[in-house]
Design a protein around this nucleic acid. Structure first.
Lengths: 184, 184
DNA sequence: TTACAGGTAAACCGATCTGTCTACTTCATG
DNA sequence: CATGAAGTAGACAGATCGGTTTACCTGTAA
């Protein structure tokens, strides 16, 4: 693995577990064994590294989620596969996402205000909602697909928060059941 | 307002907006005009202040939410009032909660790991779910009231996150609609 | 009046933070 | 062989962090 990739991967792991402000540059350096000058050559600042980590996680998560949904099929089937995927995530059956510790973007968003980080987090959420919406175009419903996609997103966000903060690891199953009735 | 209350109130405002680790003790002191020694007489450490702030916010939030639900009535009516209350919160129509910046407990929980803060955040969420459950005891449903309360909690958590991170301020209305069908 | 609790102001401490700098090494490529 | 990019190691700088300490002030109650 290249030095930048190693730094991003390790930084994510530490940020995800302990929070961004709680993890210093020196911790990332000692964890990776990379020299400080190397880090600052590739990333001009800690903030630049944080943004790279957000982009990295967005790619990992979106690739995983979209492949899970596409593998299941189209339309309603794909939406239900989303909640099955979440259930696997909550129960640590998805190696590529690392052990479940909530949504990294919700956490990161909460540590900043009026910052580039917030924009990246919002964009990540919009990307997911857009993909959900794309899977709903041929779904029969009296609601507009845009609003339906946002309702599905509410269920998805609720499952993640409920699973993490309250420790309700079966939250995705509950969300799925509500999604079923919503899509009928 | 007493010095401890002033410190807690100001600390909450700053923590809520910028995050806990991002706000230093000195910022709270200069904002309040209180001497550092006074802060450390009442709170032995920053961590103690943080815990006091969490307890403070828990009381404010629970008092507001329970009064809104009790004022509406009992059973299903109270549950629907919960989502109307959230809608008011998201649109900054609730002075006592300060301008909406997401759920303080989700944010705080994300900044710590295996810490007293996490336990307090989880307890806050459990308190709300328990109160929801208490309003469901006479609700006709094939589901157990405990699981039904957790499903309602998923909708509530989802509305908050969706409103804050994605900026979907009407998320409470969507959650309410799903709650209606869930309770039928 | 005296004693004391609660408060301010500000210096101070050691630790840690992000970020820079110098000196040396390694290695691939022209 | 020479050159230059990419790397390590680690000292260093300046700021800020949480927290302690000293000196002084103020109001209240015995």
């Amino acid at each position: 693995m290249s030095k930048p990739d190693l730094l991003i991967h390790t930084a994510f792991k530490l940020f995800y577990e302990h929070g961004i402000h709680a993890v210093g540059i020196n911790t990332i350096l000692s964890e990776t064994g990379v020299a400080k000058k190397t880090l600052y050559r590739h990333f001009g600042s800690k903030e630049a590294l944080v943004e790279a980590v957000l982009i990295y996680r967005d790619q990992i998560f979106m690739d995983w989620l979209t492949s899970r949904m596409l593998a299941a099929g189209e339309g309603k089937v794909a939406i239900l596969a989303l909640f099955d995927a979440l259930d696997d995530w909550f129960h640590d059956r998805v190696d590529v996402l690392l052990p479940f510790k909530g949504c990294f973007f919700i956490k990161a968003n909460g540590e900043f205000s009026n910052h580039a980080v917030n924009a990246l987090c919002q964009k990540h959420k919009q990307n997911i909602t857009s993909f959900i919406q794309a899977n709903l175009i041929d779904c029969s419903s009296e609601l507009s697909v845009a609003e339906l996609a946002q309702s599905i997103s509410v269920l998805k966000e609720g499952a993640i928060s409920q699973a993490y903060v309250a420790g309700d690891l079966d939250a995705a199953k509950r969300a799925k059941a509500m999604a079923v009735t919503l899509l009928d």
